[in-house]
Design a protein around this nucleic acid. Structure first.
Lengths: 256, 256
DNA sequence: AACTTGGTTCCATTATTTGGGACACCGCAT
DNA sequence: ATGCGGTGTCCCAAATAATGGAACCAAGTT
């Protein structure tokens, strides 16, 4: 068994299918049925997959839930940021969360639903286009121009996704973010989906993550968005003071 | 690379350590350093782990977050139950969630925090002793006596964990649950932690999961617990009608 | 400079994986 | 009852990959 095959199966379950049949996998991957059958069985026996005995299909095991639960859960800055965001959800009623960059995408680490009648749902693990989200762009803004150009040399095209349509347009947007220290998006990753975000950087490991509000873009007006952004900036500044982290505002100045 | 070693690493990250150093792993698993080093590196290169380049430690990758997010997310009954529980949290202010059995443990699949001042946090992936929680016992109650005896032949002992202390005591408790159709726990898995639960069974695959409220046992009194249980029973009955699922009440009669 | 600690790489040796083919099982049509 | 098609399992000779000891590297400490 090569690790490449195990990883390919897990990626397929993460991105394309909720579960897998033996023949489906063999066909999708162009593997012999015997190889697919044995590998799925072995992964099941070792606890990476579980099997529905009615449908005979395989899916990720509870082990993945536990691994996900522990993802960066021991990091004080992440925990404190999460707590601060929970408090912001309580005060404002809007959904909040933490996201990180992953190449051209942005992935939710932590989130909670708001209490508005129209709910925005962004569960942990949820992935979206970084160039078309406020969280993605606020994180891209702290990369060098070279690194951004490397990631978006071939600018992605996704049906139904708005936002900047070229590297040039993205770079212009990023200049504004560096100056402003926060970002907003409306109807870009998805029609009706709005968000405001700031970035926080862990001074210890250089990693950054975004703090965000997510809401229905039809129901949150400009002044409200500014106020939500202010809440995030204050939360980010409080974290920066407490953890010697680096919020976006100083990033803006650094790129002067 | 054997799958057994990959699984052992992932289990260790799920249960014991948030991250791993090469030497630590070699020592903990009694493997040669070269084996540990190359295996961690290979898992990193194939996207199962990521590496903090400051500390050089390995931790699960974002892939696990995505796998977890998709865990049973395509099942209409699970999705509907989750939605119903979100509504119950809104109405009552108490934390709710869904849990499943895993041998002697119970694992949270979905959850949300309540809005009470004293927050109970049970994130997805959270694992607890099935014999000492309302969710665990309500799920054990739908197993056969033989199966329960098999799992608890050697009754577990965990410091700080209350609840039934023998198979006999557990079986007595389970008889009561089968009759009542719901269960409660207070100060068993953990001092101060209270819960009420009902089980729901998916008629299609026979799997069951528990719907629960979790709360501070000091602040939720007997009458309130009964009322929370009633909410859960009503939610479970509505799901049963809609999905032809089998709530615990009929299970109680089945064992009559 | 020498030592310690953590980690990496190489390669001869050892172990495991692979996939074709035979087979089992089940549902469906005749 | 029989045959067919689809899904999946198992075996084993052949092919491929993993393994771990030893040497080495880098960084920090003495």
């Amino acid at each position: 068994m090569s690790l490449a095959k195990v990883a390919a199966i897990l990626r397929r379950l993460a991105r394309d299918q909720h579960d897998l049949a033996v023949g489906e996998l063999a066909e999708a991957m162009n593997w012999p049925k015997s190889s697919a059958s044995r590998l799925l069985k072995d992964m099941h026996q070792h606890g990476l997959l579980e099997r529905d005995y009615g449908t005979r299909r395989y899916r990720p095991s509870l082990l993945m839930l536990q691994l996900a639960a522990r993802y960066r859960s021991a990091e004080p800055l992440v925990e404190a940021a999460d707590k601060a965001l929970a408090e912001l959800t309580r005060r404002t009623g809007q959904a909040t969360g933490i996201s990180v960059l992953d190449e051209q995408d942005v992935v939710v680490l932590r989130s909670r639903a708001g209490s508005q009648p129209l709910r925005v749902v962004t569960p942990p693990g949820d992935r979206g286009p970084a160039w078309a989200t406020s969280t993605g762009r606020v994180l891209l803004a702290r990369l060098t121009d070279e690194e951004i150009a490397r990631r978006f040399r071939k600018f992605p095209r996704r049906p139904g996704v708005g936002g900047p349509a070229s590297l040039e347009a993205l770079m212009q947007r990023i200049q504004r973010i560096r100056a402003a220290g926060w970002e907003e998006a409306a109807n870009e990753a998805m029609t009706g989906l709005g968000g405001v975000s700031v970035a926080v950087e862990d001074a210890q490991n250089g990693d950054a993550f975004a703090l965000y509000f997510a809401f229905s873009s039809l129901h949150v007006h400009k002044q409200q968005r500014r106020e939500l952004a202010r809440h995030l900036r204050e939360a980010a500044d409080a974290l920066a003071r407490r953890f010697n982290a680096q919020p976006a505002a100083t990033l803006g100045r650094a790129y002067g």
